[in-house]
Nucleic acid binder design. Structure first.
Length: 951
RNA sequence: GCAGGGGUACCCGAGCUGGUCAAAGGGGCCGGACUUAAGCUCCGGUGCAUAGUGCUUCAUGGGUUCAAAUCCCAUCCCCUGCACCA
């Protein structure tokens, strides 16, 4: 057939659209399946990473529709953000325009791929229809006390001209542009995500995220149990609060260290001779680069601040230092120095010749006063406590004892600290949701009343390259307003929201995307979001940021009575990297742009080899989906993507594999084509074909349900074809049997290659379209195992015959023209039958096998006794390396033996086929002992494993 | 350093609740059929040995077991995340 995907694919896409095949509606009588991909930022065209993401999602959506589920599979765009703003500056336009032209371009790419989205739920977060609900929910957050505006040291990216959330800083660099971030003090809007720290952490145990994602989130939340302890500063009213996870080491404190930025530093040393040293240290810490930070790990530095702190439990006075290794943002920004039991403190103490005290012993027999060469950081019995009642305690008990004592004296308490910080929401950028707040000179900060929403982004802003800062701030018609509470002139907030806010609830909006009276209807969300999104597919890069924010948001909306569910995502699948070859220098261990392929390493001059690397613009090893679609069609690209690797695994791009998948499609087409000429001509192999359909269907459903798409496709696009080919080879050509098979096959092709599936469905004369089909379960047929085992018996004879023939050829001078097959003698078959029967009764062959055998009649014949014994062992206990046959025969094979099938008859019935396959003129078969023992092969004959000789 | 995940035949990749595993499937390569020929398609082969049940293989070295790619321990290497978090 002429296969023209450029004609065929759009044609079916139109049919789907006309029939609204993918429109989802609530139907409580059906089981729902919510399939979602992390929606894209519309950056112009779709890239291969998108293709992989959506091909996985689409296959699953289509599969579950075939399974009769009510599938919600929407698509939209995360369309606020910096790139559009930068592009607008460059082109002198407005981000709104840039965004919309990008959206239509990526959307048409997606449509060309044939993804089965319910486009009626389309949304773009930068549209006011969407972001007005951002604002609405911001007011709700505010009402619930989860919004806070405060001065805070923030991460500032000079290049992006805005602040960044902690999650957006990677290695002290901006996640977007890679520039190093600087610290700045600013008034900022925060969402109090830490209110949910415990739930965010604890719920991780109950959700099915991949383990690495859970770990990342756990690390990020970073809960630690410990104690807050106040150390009064000697001779002042000040108190230094420290956080420690090891209150059991309190008696070992020999100094206190605060971060150089700590507010107490100045108080303590101002005007003293110590002040200079502190200022130097502070300055040094403020401007150190990332590179120096890593070096600093080895180099602990500190300065004495001129005062002592008092250990609240022992009353001892210890010096206070400012230290470069204390993180100002964690805990209280101050730590107690216990050099005996913390390696960092130990290093510090050595450096500054501070006392090292042992207050825990490792083993019971250890001497409490022995000197230490390193810190002992484990748990152990307390020793050397300066007050009674503590020595001898260890671990949790010791910690508790210290905490209670501190609590009694009011100088400390048990405390849980988190690494997680509140979500810094505000951005000093234009292209985001305006924060609906108003600054009034007399009333302070006042929320915009709900009825005044939305606060719209002005469309009459001109963007230019020279511009710096936020254009909103200088746009007077936006900024100037009146105070909603007192009515005097006031100023609008010009900060906009982090775009992660937009993506924190879009999955709920999709449930009710066109609602214009509220963010979403509760009933709709409760239906679709029950147990969360059933399958959520996206990149690992969002493991902490998006996935944590979305979890937080869902809990907040739940607590506001907007929905029932507390965890937004059920099963999360993070698709693997898409790699492609890139030039590589093993000497320098680095990859280069594809422009260098074939030439020498630009830095060391060695010859460049090649290795696979993540597809990236900077390496130039990307592949354009459009090119591939126009060359092979969407179905081939989809098949390649799904067959190349399971969703989570990384995969390598390969042009030759893509071509091979294209050829596979042609072969499948041939199969469907050839059936059209068949007539009514039934044969035995027809039963085998339908047995294979049922078997493959069962395997396919299992694999697909597990999101093992590669395995699923292996069945639907490879195994099915190879079974078809075998059927043809065996002379099958019956119209009704093949139609039955193809009718079962066509829908199985739909998840990966939906256009082809529709074409075939029509070709074999079925009504309707596959997209609307609920697949019939072909069910089970009790004879299938037997049918397949019988065919396998023939296949095995051919397969081992082929091996043996090549061996035989070495020994035979004349041409081989005949194969003699001696089937198992009756007594062996009986023995096998007996073994199977006993095995079904859980007979213990190890213990009782021999006794049982000796009681059998066959064992009485002295001449064959040895052979009987051998056969029995090979059937039952097996040898050292091989298990007994009773364990290795399939159920079908066991039935063949149990039914005492006449192997000779089966072979004779298929002798023509066997002869052709083995390239001989005649096939002769008889039971061993009933004819000449050609080649002495009779003794090898065993049930289902006849002796084969070539002559 | 800590945590998570890995190392399987020429390559990619399954298997890893121990036996049916010389190890699925694909790519590549080799051979055969078809063809005027190439391509396509189909069939076979692809550790070594061998007229069949044998030997050596699943990062390395040990161990458990009648039996290990699969379980345990140690080592080496790779990826990913966090990184002076008290």
């Amino acid at each position: 057939m002429t296969y023209d995907p450029q004609e065929l694919e759009p044609r079916w896409q139109n049919v789907w659209a006309e029939q609204e095949a993918f429109k989802a509606q609530i139907d409580k009588s059906k089981q729902k399946f919510y399939c979602l991909e992390m929606f894209p930022y519309p950056s112009g065209h779709m890239h291969m990473g998108h293709v992989r993401n959506y091909s996985i999602g689409d296959a699953m959506a289509r599969f579950h529709r075939l399974m009769g589920k009510n599938v919600l599979y929407p698509m939209g765009y995360d369309s606020f953000g910096m790139p559009a703003e930068n592009a607008a500056k460059k082109e002198g336009g407005h981000p709104h325009k840039v965004t919309h032209s990008n959206i239509s371009s990526i959307r048409s790419d997606q449509e060309r791929m044939g993804y089965s989205y319910d486009w009626s739920r389309f949304l773009a977060t930068s549209d006011v229809d969407y972001y007005k609900w951002n604002q609405d929910m911001f007011l709700t957050l505010n009402e619930r006390g989860l919004v806070e505006r405060r001065m805070a040291p923030v991460n500032w990216c000079v290049d992006c001209d805005t602040v960044l959330a902690n999650e957006q800083v990677k290695n002290n660099r901006c996640w977007r542009c890679g520039l190093e971030v600087v610290q700045k003090d600013m008034a900022q809007w925060f969402l109090r995500m830490t209110e949910y720290s415990d739930e965010l952490l604890d719920e991780l145990d109950n959700i099915s995220f991949p383990e690495n994602v859970k770990t990342m989130q756990r690390n990020w939340i970073g809960r630690s149990n410990g104690a807050h302890i106040d150390f009064p500063v000697d001779g002042t009213d000040s108190v230094i609060g420290v956080f420690t996870t090891r209150p059991d080491t309190i008696f070992g404190v020999t100094f206190v260290t605060v971060s150089p930025e700590h507010e107490l530093c100045e108080q303590l040393c101002a005007g003293t001779k110590w002040e200079g040293g502190w200022r130097n240290l502070k300055e040094e810490c403020a401007k150190i680069s990332e590179f120096e930070r890593i070096n600093m790990l080895k180099d602990k530095k500190g300065v004495f601040l001129g005062k002592n702190a008092i250990n609240p439990i022992s009353g001892e006075k210890v010096p206070i230092y400012a230290g470069n290794f204390v993180v100002s943002s964690y805990g209280t920004g101050a730590v107690m120095g216990v050099p005996g039991h913390d390696q960092r403190d130990f290093d510090f103490a050595k450096e500054y010749e501070l006392e090292i005290k042992r207050v825990l012993i490792e083993d019971n027999g250890d001497i409490p006063d022995s000197p230490q060469h390193r810190a002992f950081e484990g748990y152990g019995q307390m020793v050397n406590s300066s007050i009674a009642g503590f020595d001898g305690l260890s671990g949790e008990q010791a910690k508790q004892a210290v905490i209670s004592t501190l609590e009694e004296s009011g100088s400390g308490r048990g405390k849980v600290e988190y690494r997680l910080k509140d979500w810094l929401l505000s951005r000093q950028r234009f292209w985001g949701t305006p924060i609906p707040m108003i600054h009034c000179e007399s009333c302070g900060v006042v929320p915009v009343p709900r009825e005044d929403l939305p606060v719209q982004l002005p469309l009459d802003v001109i963007f230019t390259e020279e511009q710096s800062g936020n254009p909103l701030a200088s746009h007077s018609s936006f900024v100037d307003t009146r105070c909603p509470s007192c009515g005097i002139n006031a100023r609008r907030e010009t900060d906009t929201m982090d775009t992660f806010y937009d993506s924190s609830w879009y999955f709920m909006r999709f449930c009710d995307a066109n609602n214009d009276s509220e963010p979403f209807d509760r009933q709709a969300v409760d239906y679709w979001m029950n147990d969360g999104v059933d399958l959520y597919i996206g990149g690992i890069e969002h493991a902490v940021m998006h996935l944590l924010y979305a979890r937080f948001f869902t809990k907040f909306t739940r607590d506001s009575g907007m929905n029932d569910v507390g965890e937004p995502f059920g099963r999360l699948v993070c698709q693997g990297m898409l790699n492609a070859p890139a030039p590589y220098c093993s000497e320098c261990n680095s990859e280069y742009h594809v422009d260098y392929s074939g030439s020498d390493c630009p830095s060391c001059g060695d010859q460049l080899s090649s290795r696979s690397a993540k597809m990236s613009k900077s390496l130039g090893n990307t592949v354009s989906p459009e090119d591939m679609i126009s060359k092979y069609g969407a179905d081939t690209v989809r098949l390649f993507i799904l067959f190349g690797a399971n969703p989570e695994a990384g995969m390598d791009w390969s042009d030759s594999a893509l071509e091979a998948n294209n050829r596979q499609i042609y072969s499948i087409i041939d199969a469907f084509e050839s059936s059209l000429n068949f007539t009514n001509s039934p044969s035995d192999i027809d039963h085998w074909l339908s047995a294979r359909l049922r078997e493959n269907h069962r395997k396919w459903v299992k694999a697909m349900s597990d999101v093992s798409l590669r395995e699923g496709v292996m069945v639907s696009h490879f195994q099915m074809l190879s079974d078809w080919n075998w059927y043809i080879r065996r002379g099958g050509r019956d119209k009704s049997a093949t139609i039955q098979f193809l009718k079962g096959w066509a829908p199985m092709l739909a998840p990966a290659t939906p256009h082809l599936a529709e074409e075939f469905w029509k070709k074999i004369g079925q009504g309707g379209i596959v997209a609307n089909l609920e697949i019939e379960n072909p069910g089970e047929n009790p004879d299938d195992l037997l049918t397949m085992a019988k065919e396998k018996f023939v296949k095995d004879i051919i397969s081992s015959g082929r091996n043996l023939k090549t061996l035989a050829e070495r020994h035979s001078k004349a041409d081989i023209t005949k194969v003699v097959i001696q089937t198992s003698p009756k007594w062996k078959a009986d023995l096998a039958l007996e073994a199977i029967r006993l095995n079904d009764e859980n007979f213990d062959f190890e213990e009782e096998g021999h006794r049982h055998l000796k009681a059998l009649d066959v064992f009485n014949n002295e001449k064959t006794r040895g052979e009987v014994f051998q056969a029995w062992s090979s059937f039952t206990t097996g040898s050292k390396k091989k298990r007994g046959r009773i364990h290795t025969w399939s159920d079908g094979e066991k039935s063949l033996i149990s039914m005492e099938i006449d192997e000779t008859k089966v072979i004779n019935a298929n002798s023509g086929f066997i002869a052709t396959e083995l390239g001989v003129e005649t096939v002769e078969a008889y039971g061993a002992g009933q004819g000449e023992d050609v080649g002495g092969k009779a003794k090898l004959a065993s049930p289902l494993e006849p002796g084969i000789a070539f002559v």
